[in-house]
C-alpha cells in the first residue's frame, strides 16, 4: 500500500528508540539532577553556647572483666587409679606373699588418693574465693559505671534545662514598672520536636505582667533546644522551670 511513503520500518524503529532515549534522559535528570533535601538551611540556625556539653555523653564501655572461668573438674577422676586388680592366675604357694604385697599396695594407694583429694579440695576452695572476689569487683565496677552514667545524665539534663531557660530568657520582654523580683514557676509540655504544646502556671508570682511575659517568651522561643539523645529526650516531655527578672 501507499502507507510506505509515510512511515518506513526504519523510521518506526528510530522513533521508538528516540522516545526511549528521551524518557531515559528526563528520568536521569530528575533522579540525579534534583536533590530536594537542602541541608544547608538547617545549618543557618546557629546558637552559641559558652560551655558545650558533648552532644552525646561518651558511654564508658563497661570494662569486660575476665569472667572467672568455671573451675575445671577436680583432677580426682583422672588421678584415680583403676583399682581393678588383674585376676591372678598365680600358683598357690605365692598367695600369702601376694596377699601381703597387695595389702601394702592398697594402703599406699589409699593414702595417695586421700592426699590428692585434700589437694583438690584446697585448690577448689581457693578458686571459689577468687571467683567470689572477682564477681564482687565486677559488681562494684558496674555500679560505679551506672552511677557515673546517671550523674552524667543528670548533668546533661541540667545543662539542657539551663539552655532552655537561657533561650526563653532571650525572648522575654520585661514589662515596665516591675516591682521587686517576682518568681513564676511554670509547667511546660514539650513535643519531641521542641514545640511547646502547653504552658501552665504552677505558681504565679505577684506580678501578673511578668508571668504573662514569660509565657509569651516560652511560646516565642519554640523550638526549644532539646538533647538529640532520645533516651534523654524523654525527660523533657514535661519541664518545670522558674523564672525571675533578676538573677
Amino acid at each position: 500500500m501507499t502507507a510506505d511513503t509515510f512511515i518506513t520500518p526504519n523510521e518506526r524503529a528510530l522513533s521508538g528508540a528516540l522516545a526511549l532515549v528521551t524518557h531515559a534522559l528526563f528520568f536521569a535528570l530528575l533522579v540525579f539532577g534534583v536533590s530536594w533535601q537542602k541541608r544547608e538551611q538547617a545549618a543557618m540556625v546557629a546558637e552559641l553556647w559558652t560551655s558545650l556539653p558533648p552532644m552525646s555523653a561518651p558511654q564508658p564501655e563497661p570494662e569486660v572483666k575476665p569472667q572467672p572461668e568455671p573451675p575445671p573438674p577436680p583432677p580426682k577422676a583422672e588421678a584415680k587409679p583403676v583399682p581393678k586388680a588383674e585376676p591372678v592366675p598365680a600358683p598357690k604357694a605365692d598367695i600369702a606373699l601376694k596377699d601381703k604385697k597387695d595389702k601394702q599396695r592398697k594402703a599406699q594407694e589409699l593414702a595417695e588418693k586421700k592426699k590428692q583429694q585434700e589437694q583438690a579440695r584446697v585448690a577448689e576452695q581457693a578458686r571459689a574465693a577468687e571467683a567470689q572476689r572477682l564477681a564482687r569487683e565486677q559488681d562494684e565496677a558496674l555500679k560505679k559505671i551506672a552511677a557515673q552514667q546517671a550523674s552524667e545524665r543528670a548533668k546533661m539534663v541540667d545543662e539542657y534545662k539551663r539552655r532552655i531557660a537561657e533561650r526563653v530568657k532571650r525572648y522575654i520582654i520585661e514589662p515596665p514598672n516591675l516591682q521587686g523580683n517576682p518568681e513564676v514557676e511554670l509547667d511546660i509540655v514539650v513535643l519531641p520536636g521542641g514545640e511547646v504544646l502547653d504552658v501552665r502556671t504552677r505558681k504565679a508570682s505577684a506580678a501578673t505582667a511578668w508571668d504573662n511575659a514569660v509565657e509569651r517568651a516560652i511560646r516565642r522561643a519554640q523550638p526549644l533546644p532539646l538533647p538529640p539523645d532520645p533516651a534523654l529526650a524523654k525527660e523533657f516531655r514535661e519541664l518545670n522551670l522558674k523564672f525571675r527578672p533578676k538573677e
Binding site: 511513503t5 509515510f6 512511515i7 523510521e11 518506526r12 528510530l14 522513533s15 521508538g16 528516540l18 522516545a19 526511549l20 528521551t22 524518557h23
Partner: peptide
C-alpha cells in the same frame, strides 16, 4: 508513562513524515 512513551514515539514519527512529505 505509557501515554508519554507513545506520544513521543508518534512525535518522532510525525517529524520524519512531515520532513519527507
Amino acid at each position: 508513562l505509557l501515554a508519554s512513551m507513545f506520544s513521543w514515539y508518534y512525535i518522532f514519527l510525525k517529524i520524519f513524515t512531515f520532513k519527507r512529505a
